[in-house]
Simulated assay, not measured.
Amino acid sequence: MTVESVTYNRITSPRNLINVGVFTAVYFVVLFAGGMLGILNPVMVLLGALAGTVVNAMVCMLYVAKTRALGAYTLLGLVIGLLMVATGHAWVTPILSTGLGLLADLITRAGGYTRTSTNALGFAVFSVWCVGPVLPVLWGSEEYFADMARRMGQDYADTFRELATPAVIGGWVVLVFLVAFGCALVGVRVLHKHFERAGVA
């Protein structure tokens, strides 16, 4: 299928609004499950986000295939960002997740929602939003770690302080991007092989 032959949909159609609700819920459940690994150890905060990215690659590839509409990632990012703030994370998170969602929308639309490279790149760009909750480390670390100590204990906060250096956070963002891109490539192939044949996508 060529980019020119793709039929674009409206994100505000009833069907797509349902898709936004369903896939946002699934995305958040996967994200929450990965985030829960952080209870075990501060290192798992970062590894849990990576695990969630791996699973959500397939979720988002199916989401893009089902909606094929500008605004899909933007709405996903907005809702997820607001949910993160509601669960105690940094205020900057919805700004970052919504902005990257818009950029991901533009990338996937440029490929007509069918080009493997742009679908994978859109997801990879969007996935970088997960740095939002830890960004306060860069400008308000004392308050951030004091709050973490109240919630998780002083030892946990001290360990995370040693881990969450700007260099580590920067490297982690790059790793998230690469893992997201690679998993999305696999997700597109799985989508073509199984879901499209079954008429799901």
Rank of each mutant, 00 (worst) to 15 (best):
residue 82 L to V: 14
residue 84 M to L: 14
residue 85 V to A: 04
residue 85 V to I: 11
residue 87 T to Y: 11
residue 87 T to Q: 07
residue 90 A to D: 07
residue 91 W to F: 15
residue 93 T to K: 01
residue 93 T to L: 08
residue 95 I to L: 15
residue 98 T to D: 09
residue 100 L to Y: 05
residue 101 G to L: 08
residue 101 G to S: 06
residue 101 G to F: 04
residue 102 L to F: 15
residue 104 A to N: 03
residue 106 L to C: 08
residue 107 I to C: 05
residue 109 R to I: 00
residue 111 G to K: 07
residue 112 G to Y: 08
residue 112 G to W: 08
residue 114 T to G: 13
residue 114 T to F: 03
residue 116 T to G: 07
residue 117 S to N: 12
residue 118 T to I: 06
residue 119 N to G: 09
residue 120 A to Q: 03
residue 121 L to S: 04
residue 122 G to C: 10
residue 124 A to G: 08
residue 129 W to P: 00
residue 129 W to V: 00
residue 130 C to T: 12
residue 130 C to K: 14
residue 130 C to R: 08
residue 131 V to Q: 00
residue 132 G to N: 02
residue 133 P to G: 09
residue 139 W to H: 09
residue 139 W to F: 15
residue 139 W to R: 03
residue 141 S to E: 14
residue 142 E to T: 13
residue 142 E to D: 15
residue 143 E to I: 10
residue 146 A to P: 02
residue 146 A to L: 02
residue 147 D to G: 11
residue 148 M to V: 05
residue 148 M to D: 06
residue 154 Q to H: 10
residue 155 D to I: 05
residue 155 D to C: 01
residue 155 D to E: 12
residue 155 D to G: 13
residue 156 Y to M: 12
residue 156 Y to P: 10
residue 156 Y to W: 11
residue 157 A to L: 10
residue 157 A to Q: 01
residue 157 A to P: 08
residue 160 F to G: 09
residue 163 L to T: 08
residue 163 L to E: 01
residue 163 L to K: 03
residue 165 T to C: 03
residue 166 P to L: 11
residue 167 A to D: 04
residue 168 V to S: 03
residue 168 V to T: 11
residue 170 G to H: 01
residue 170 G to W: 06
residue 170 G to S: 05
residue 172 W to T: 05
residue 172 W to G: 01
residue 173 V to K: 00
residue 173 V to M: 01
residue 174 V to R: 12
residue 176 V to R: 07
residue 176 V to G: 09
residue 176 V to E: 05
residue 176 V to A: 11
residue 177 F to R: 13
residue 178 L to I: 15
residue 180 A to V: 09
residue 180 A to W: 07
residue 181 F to V: 06
residue 181 F to A: 13
residue 183 C to M: 14
residue 184 A to S: 15
residue 185 L to P: 00
residue 185 L to N: 03
residue 185 L to H: 04
residue 187 G to P: 03
residue 188 V to I: 06
residue 188 V to K: 13
residue 188 V to F: 13
